[in-house]
Every structure is written in C-alpha cells, then in structure tokens.
Amino acid sequence: MSLTQKSFLPFFLSLIFLLSTITTTTSTLQNLLRSQGLPGGLFPNNVKSYNLDQNGRLEVQLDGPCMTKYEARVVFDSVVRANLSYGGLMGLEGLIQEELFLWFPVKGFLVNDPSSGLILVDIGLAHKQLSRSLFEVPPVCKPREADLLENLGRKMGFQAQR
C-alpha cells in the first residue's frame, strides 16, 4: 500500500463518520419530535446536536444562525431552546418569523388535533394555523442575509482600502 493510499483511508473513514453523525443527529431529532406528536421538520437540516433534559427542556445547537422559509421567512439563532411536551414545543427562544415586513419571535408550535393536518404557530401577538405538511421535512437553512451583506461590506471595504 502506498503512502497516498494509507493517508486516504483514515481521511475517508473520518468523512464517513462525520456525515453519518450529522445525518444521525438530524434524523434522531426528527424521531424525537415525531414521538411527541410533532412534525419532524420543525428544525432545519443543519442541526449539530441537541439535548433534552428530564424536565423536557430541549436545546438544539445549529451550525450557526440561518434563514429558511416555511410559509414565511424564519431565522434560527445558533441555539434554540424550548419546552417539549406531547403535541407542543412551547417557550421557544431563538426563532423569529417575518410577518408583513416585521419580525416577531416565535413562541411555540402546538398540535391540538393530529388528524386536522394543522399546526398552530404562536408568534406572540397572534396565532397562525398552518398546514402540518410544511413542517414534515427539515428545511435547508442558509446563512442569514444580514450576515451575507455584512461580509460583503467588509470585503468591499477591504478592497477599497488597497
């Protein structure tokens, strides 16, 4: 076996382990949510890890703040916390949703009647009923637009100073 083949094997095995860990974390969180009567796609695809304590307090770590869309645009913080109980994810922290060009904190998700196909989204000032199907698959979450604009501004400023 050549040196290149010897160094490639550990790299390849590490890559497989890393990818299986990411997939397992996301799918395990999906399974946890489904076992509690909730859709599995309430959190995006970039979940790094999560912890559920004995009091039902769920903490989800993401790769970083990101934006996605269900029915409206939403922004996830890098850490999202909530109280998990059967049919509900309440007391949410770290999630905001755009409504009529304003951003509101999402306080919770509630499934009162699983057969209705609806999920109740609590945005503080109001409750919205949305199709549960919007939340079945974890959405792709991209870096927030504000972060992209800030990085672009830094790059342009750096180039202008040359």
Rank of each mutant, 00 (worst) to 15 (best):
L9Y: 11
F11L: 11
F12T: 03
L13C: 07
S14C: 11
S14T: 11
L19H: 09
T25C: 11
S27R: 10
S27M: 13
T28V: 13
Q30H: 12
S35K: 10
Q36M: 11
Q36V: 04
G37H: 10
F43L: 05
P44I: 11
P44S: 12
V47S: 01
K48V: 15
S49G: 05
S49A: 07
N51Y: 04
D53N: 02
D53P: 01
D53R: 02
N55K: 09
R57N: 06
R57M: 08
E59C: 07
V60E: 05
Q61D: 03
Q61R: 05
L62F: 09
D63N: 12
G64F: 06
M67H: 03
M67F: 09
T68Y: 08
S78Y: 07
V79Q: 12
V79F: 15
L84H: 02
G87F: 08
G88S: 12
G91C: 12
E93P: 09
E93C: 12
G94W: 08
G94F: 08
Q97F: 12
E98A: 13
E99C: 13
F101V: 08
F101S: 10
F104K: 00
F104Y: 02
P105N: 01
V106P: 03
V106H: 06
G108D: 07
F109A: 05
V111K: 02
D113Y: 09
P114M: 11
P114V: 09
S115H: 03
L118H: 00
D122V: 04
D122R: 00
D122M: 07
A126L: 14
A126V: 12
A126D: 14
H127V: 14
K128S: 06
S131M: 09
S133T: 15
L134G: 04
L134R: 04
F135T: 00
F135N: 00
V137R: 13
V140Y: 08
P143M: 01
P143N: 00
A146R: 12
D147N: 04
